[in-house]
Design a protein around this nucleic acid. Structure first.
Lengths: 302, 302
DNA sequence: GTCACCTCTGAAAGATATTTTCGGCGCGGT
DNA sequence: ACCGCGCCGAAAATATCTTTCAGAGGTGAC
C-alpha cells in the first residue's frame, strides 16, 4: 500500500503530518524563490490549499503548475496529488485539535515570565518537529554501526562541539571507545586512523561547516561508516555521510539565535543514538552505567 | 471556498467527518448492490481507500469507475476526488486519536521509533515542568546581577560542565566576560579573584557536587553574587547561593540516566538567563550577536 | 563591461485520473 | 415468452496532474 502520511523523509509509517511547517522551514533553504512562495502558502493554510487544484494553487501563488509540483516533490511527496491528500489530513487534524497559537517571538521588552514560557514552548516545538522528521531507518542504521564499532569519533565545533562532547561522554559511559574533536587539525589527523567498522559522526547545523566536513571526508575515504547530524539534509556534509540524521530548524529571531533550537534538536538525536546503542549492547551497557554511577557517589557531599 | 469536510447531509460546515460509517448505514437502502459494496469497503478502511484512485477502488470492489463515482455522489460529495480528500482527513484523525498512550519508560526491546517518540515526549515534559517550577523572581535577580557583572564564572563538572560551557559561549557572544570551569582546582583559584559585582554560577543536578560547591563558596565569601542552578533546592550548594534556580527532576530509568533530563532542564534555565541578559543589554548585545554571526560566515563552504 | 554559463521559471505537450455517456444485460411483470 | 425498467460497466470526454523544453534572469569570469 502506498504510504501517504509517512514523513517525507521516508521514515516509518506512523508519523503524524503535523510537522509540515517544520519541514517547510528545514527545506526552505534548498528551494527557489517561487517554490518558497508556494511552500509558505501551503504551510499557512493547509485546509485552504487542500481545496485547490494544481492550477488553482499555481494561480494563487502567482506561479506555474510546474513550480507547484516541484515544491511538492521537495517536500517529499511523489507529486501534487499526494501533497494535497496529506494537506487534507493535516487540515482535519488541525480542526480537531485547535492550534495553541502562541506568538513565540521573544521581544526585547517581554517580561521574564513570558521569556520562560516562550522559550519552553519553542523548545518543545523543536523537539516535536525533530522527532517527527527523524528518519528512523537511518537512525537504526547509525545505531547498528555504532553498536558494532571498534571506535567512534565525533566532530563538532562551536555549539555543536558541546553536543559532540555530550554524545562522547555518554558513549564512554557504556564502554564504547569514543572521542570528540573540536580541533579541526587533530580531527583530521585522527580521522586518518579510522578504518572499516569504525564510525565517524559529524555534527553541524548548517551542513556546511568546513572544519567538520573535512575530517568526515577523510574518515569516509578511509572506509569508516560516516554519520551526519545536520539541519540541512542537502548540505555539502551529506556527500560523505553514509547515514543522514536530520535535525529541525526553528526560525530564529534576533534575540534567539539558531544555535539555540538546533542544539535542542541535536541533543535529542544524540540521545536517541545513545539509547539505541545502549539497547543493542545491553548486557555490557547496563553494568557499565551503574558502575559509573557508583564511581561518582563519593564526590557528593553528605 | 469549497467545503470539503462538511457533512454530506448538508448541515453546517464544522461537522466532524467521523460519522462516515453511520452515513453509509443511513444511505445504504437507497443504494444499489454494487454501490453498497463500494460504500462498505470505504467505511471499513478509509485510510486504505484514500490511497486508491477511482480505478483502483473499482477493481478492489469488483465494480467500475462509474459506480464508484455514483457512490461518492450518494454519500454527498461532488465526485470521487472530494470523497478521497475527506477520506484522507478521516484517516489522519483516526491516526492522531491513538498514540498518546505511551508508557514513557523505555524498554530494552523497544523499536527505535518508539525510543524517539518516548524520548521526545519525556524531554517535552521536562521542559514544561522546568518552566512551571522556575522562580521568575530569582531568575530576574540573577539576570540583573549578570547584566551588570564585570565578570562571570560558571562552574560545572560532568554533564553539567557542558551546560556551563554552553552558557559561557553564549554570554561571550554578547560581550560579557565569562569563563566556564570544570577543573575544581582552577575554579577555586579563579574564584578567589572575584569580588562584589562579579557573578559566580554553580550548576549541579544533585546539589551536592563538592567540586562545584567549593568554588561557589569561595566566590560567595569574596563578595560575588552567587547563583545555583540545581535540581535540589535544599541541597548543600544553596548554602552559598544568593539566587537559586531550580531545575526539574524527571525520574530516571535504567536506560535513561538522570543526566539526560537534568541536562534538558538546565539548558532551558541557562537559555532563559541568556535571553534575559540579552534583553537588558540589548544595545550592546544585538550588534555583538550579528557580528559573531558574520565572523562565522566564511567558515562555511559554498 | 561583456560574455558565457547556469539556474530558475512558465507555457505547452503529454500522461493520468476522473467524470460522463451510452448501450447491454438481468430482472420482474404481463 | 416478451416487454419495460433500471442497474451496470466500457469507453469516450473532460479535468487534472506531470513532464518537457526553451526563454528569462542572474552570476561569475575575463
Amino acid at each position: 500500500m502506498k504510504e501517504i502520511f509517512g514523513s517525507a523523509s521516508g521514515s516509518s509509517g506512523s508519523t503524524p503530518p503535523a510537522a509540515l511547517a517544520a519541514k517547510v522551514r528545514t527545506l526552505a533553504p534548498s528551494m527557489t524563490r517561487s517554490m518558497q512562495r508556494v511552500a509558505e502558502t501551503v504551510a499557512a493554510d493547509p485546509a485552504g490549499c487542500a481545496a485547490l487544484t494544481v492550477t488553482g494553487l499555481a494561480e494563487l501563488t502567482g506561479t506555474s503548475e510546474a513550480t507547484v509540483v516541484r515544491t511538492a516533490r521537495i517536500l517529499g511527496y511523489p507529486g501534487y496529488r499526494d501533497l494535497r491528500l496529506a494537506l487534507a489530513g493535516l487540515a482535519a487534524q488541525q480542526q480537531s485539535g485547535r492550534a495553541p497559537a502562541l506568538t513565540t517571538d521573544i521581544a526585547v521588552d517581554d517580561p521574564i515570565a513570558d521569556v520562560v514560557a516562550k522559550l519552553a514552548y519553542d523548545e518543545q516545538q523543536t523537539l516535536a518537529d525533530t522527532a517527527a522528521g527523524l528518519d528512523t531507518v537511518q537512525l537504526g542504521a547509525a545505531v547498528t554501526a555504532l553498536a558494532a564499532a571498534r571506535r567512534a569519533d565525533v566532530y563538532g565545533v562551536g555549539a555543536s562541539g558541546l553536543v559532540a562532547q555530550d554524545l562522547t561522554q555518554k558513549l564512554l559511559r557504556i564502554g564504547l571507545i569514543a572521542h570528540a574533536h573540536s580541533d579541526p587539525h587533530l580531527a583530521v589527523t585522527n580521522a586518518v586512523q579510522l578504518k572499516a567498522g569504525d564510525v565517524a559522526i559529524a555534527i553541524t547545523h548548517s551542513g556546511s561547516t568546513g572544519d567538520v566536513i573535512e575530517p568526515l571526508r577523510v574518515a569516509f575515504e578511509h572506509g569508516a561508516t560516516t554519520v551526519a547530524i545536520t539541519g540541512r539534509p542537502d548540505g555539502p556534509v551529506t556527500q560523505y555521510a553514509d547515514h543522514i540524521l536530520t535535525t529541525s530548524t526553528a526560525r530564529e529571531s534576533e534575540l534567539r539565535p539558531a544555535a539555540m533550537s538546533s542544539r535542542t534538536s541535536q541533543l535529542l538525536v544524540v540521545d536517541c543514538l545513545f539509547i539505541g546503542v545502549a539497547q543493542r549492547t545491553y548486557e555490557q551497557a547496563a553494568p557499565a552505567l551503574s558502575a559509573s554511577y557508583e564511581a561518582l557517589a563519593h564526590r557528593h557531599r553528605r
